[in-house]
Design a protein around this nucleic acid. Structure first.
Lengths: 254, 254
DNA sequence: CATAATGAGTGGTTGAACCAGTTGTCAAGG
DNA sequence: CCTTGACAACTGGTTCAACCACTCATTATG
């Protein structure tokens, strides 16, 4: 009952967010937004902990996360250096980058450059799923298709967007490949996160459920080519719409 | 001059490694090796800090890293729960997994499943590099090719293996795609790490320098197909050798 | 002029205390 | 008997103050 009580302070802490997370998020935003450039040195831990009104230990836990995100590098006695995350980052930075980066044009380019790799990885998932899917996997895929059909029936883009992740997760399961799953995880997570915030990016015109149904049928018949065709038919149209939407103007924030 | 002094204790600390890193590495190994299964709860922070002879604050910094590696999940008041990293992990776990996992057969399967995604991502890099490479990129690629030729002249697999990373990095640079670079980073890092520990995995028979030379020539002429052919010629042979080597027996530790 | 000592600044580590959620226990009240 | 609520015993979250260890620029020293 006391959960709705707000905390005042220079940095409004979201509900349930710990001080550590708040500091991490703040520094993450500062770096991705370019307030600290590559090669630059962060202020000392004592100074930062004073600035963010957190103890030095808490501040350090946040720094540890920054380090693990390849945003900074720490050397004993020398301080914390900001890395060039464009060079050193991983796909886990996609979400934060799309949220915090200042240059809207660059963000659009990143989004555009995301489309092909995503399509390629899904194609690889299909190829492996065709070889390795078990009956249980087919059941899960069937359920995901059904969920997509139900979502599409509501006519709500957000519902369809929400149905995409279970479908892709089922595909990942069916591929039975650890490396592929590990490669796909940050990408799917970022896309899911993006669609959750901007559901209007989910296209309604090429039918999502027809696409998934087509892929599933292809897989069941062992006809990978048919599955890939269904996949491409959807993405060629959907991705083209995205390219058109992203090219001219920027995006909206949540 | 005092750097070679060893520290005694139940956990020998590698040179220059901090207590935090030692604890992180130990817990990482324990989880990846399966000593703590998915869903299981880790001992409390107080207990762990006693076990590893580190203060609770230091221990917590290590846990923060485990959390960021998707190995554990922490909830206030409830403890630290081990996640199913096979499901939740990312490519950054490749190195630790290949180093610490117990099941040699599973590790071999992971290595095998790595070959195709790697080839695919390099093909994507080629496609983009063909469109986007600048004169500076070509210079860097040329230097990488030269380094490969020099390495090959020594006849030392380790030297050739060490020459592979700069080549791939130059390719990544030339592709000018943040998402692709971010996807490639953990993969290339894991492969580089692997080859550094097991250089005999680097094949000498399909000439590495001929491959890179062929790719570079193709790129310069804008002939992507030729570049891809050179790439595939190398990898078809090299990867097949790897598959043959990995299928029967296990691997050796460094 | 080369070299060694120094000191200031940095991150690394410690231990104790306290705050804050979560959960099971158990007695009071229905 | 069952429900309810206070409580106790966990758990992680946070803070503080002090000290250790490393790096580097300065300065004294040979």
């Amino acid at each position: 009952m006391a959960a709705t009580r707000r905390r005042r302070g220079k940095t409004a802490r979201a509900r349930g967010q710990s001080a550590r997370d708040a500091v991490y998020e703040a520094l993450l935003e500062a770096i991705v937004a370019g307030e600290y450039g590559p090669g630059e040195r962060l202020p000392g831990e004592r100074e930062l902990s004073a600035k963010w009104k957190a103890s030095r230990n808490t501040l350090r836990e946040a720094i540890r996360r920054l380090e693990h995100s390849h945003l900074v590098s720490t050397r004993h006695g020398q301080g914390v250096t900001v890395l060039d995350f464009r060079r050193t980052g991983t796909l886990e930075l996609l979400g934060p980058f799309l949220q915090y980066a200042r240059d809207d044009r660059e963000k659009a380019l990143v989004l555009l450059d995301l489309l092909e790799p995503r399509l390629h990885i899904i194609e690889q998932l299909l190829a492996l799923a065709a070889k390795r899917a078990t009956p249980a996997d087919f059941e899960a895929l069937e359920a995901a298709v059904a969920r997509g059909e139900a979502a599409e029936a509501t006519g709500d883009p957000a519902a369809v967007a929400a149905a995409q992740d279970p479908w892709l997760q089922a595909l990942v399961d069916a591929a039975h490949s650890l490396p592929l799953r590990w490669a796909a995880n940050p990408l799917l997570h970022a896309v899911d996160d993006l669609l959750r915030r901007l559901p209007y990016l989910m296209p309604m015109t090429p039918s999502f459920s027809e696409y998934t149904r087509g892929v599933l049928d292809g897989l069941k018949r062992g006809d990978v080519d048919a599955a890939v065709r269904a996949l491409r038919h959807f993405h060629v149209t959907a991705d083209e719409a995205l390219r058109a939407a992203l090219a001219p103007d920027g995006d909206r924030r949540g």
